[in-house]
Simulated assay, not measured.
Amino acid sequence: MTGIIVRNLSEQLVDLVRDRILAGKVDVDRAIRQDALAAELGVSKIPLREALTRLEQEGLVRSRANRGYFVRELTIAEAEEVYALRLTLEPDVAAQAAERATEEERAVARQTLAQLDEVTHAHGDGVGAFNRAFHLALLRPSRQPITTTMLERLHVLGERYVRKHLEPLGRDQRANDEHAQLLDCWLARDAAAVRVRMYAHIEQTVLDLRREFRGDTVSVQ
């Protein structure tokens, strides 16, 4: 029983720290203060260090000898890799999901987009998380658990880039319009249209990010 409790704590810490990183609440250019973070979360450093090790495996943080853990910097090279993989996998998986989705899964997709729209219009926190949830709602009904898990990890890695992509004025509304059109095709079980719209939606994000990084001072590796 003790092992189950410890594992649950570790999982909760992974989720909590991941959410903070994805929301941009942890500085990129300074070491994560493990003592302060552990005290704030009410845990010891051991499970926190385990959570940071997990997040390093996910690609969100990196450890440096004798310096601790740092949030990985945003780079165009990483963005290109993440989105190239999404372009290869996601359109076909979403198309299959559209054909296989149950009525309950279709309702989840509708509800998730409504929540994303609400958060976006309120300019509140969590746009990236709801964007990820919406895309995954369009993917999980594909009944391809291995590929969907891979895509889920890509969405986690890409979430900070989504936030960067949506910073310029007007991009959030355009993204919402694209999501609405994509959902309409998905609900109509129009697999061909889903493939086309999903590819175009992801590709546009990459094009926008390239322009942003060209005018940015963020390091490119």
Rank of each mutant, 00 (worst) to 15 (best):
E56V: 00
S63M: 06
R62G: 07
Q57M: 03
E58Y: 12
E78T: 14
L60M: 05
E50I: 15
E50K: 14
R64C: 00
L60N: 01
A51E: 03
L52W: 04
L52I: 07
K45Y: 04
E56K: 10
T75E: 06
K45D: 10
V71R: 01
E56F: 03
K45W: 02
V71Q: 09
E78S: 15
V61R: 07
T53A: 14
T53F: 10
R67M: 06
V71L: 08
L74D: 04
S63W: 09
A77C: 08
A65Y: 11
I46H: 14
Y69I: 01
L52V: 03
L48T: 08
P47H: 10
R67H: 13
T75P: 10
E50T: 15
T53Y: 08
N66K: 15
V61N: 02
Q57N: 10
I76Q: 11
P47G: 11
G68R: 08
R54M: 02
A51D: 11
T75K: 03
V61I: 06
V71F: 02
L60K: 03
Q57P: 01
A51M: 00
R62M: 08
L60P: 04
Q57W: 08
L52P: 01
A79T: 05
E50W: 07
Y69A: 06
E50G: 13
I76F: 13
I76C: 10
P47R: 06
L60Y: 02
E78Q: 12
E58C: 05
L55R: 05
V71W: 05
L74G: 04
V71P: 00
I76R: 05
R62T: 12
R64P: 03
I46T: 14
V61T: 04
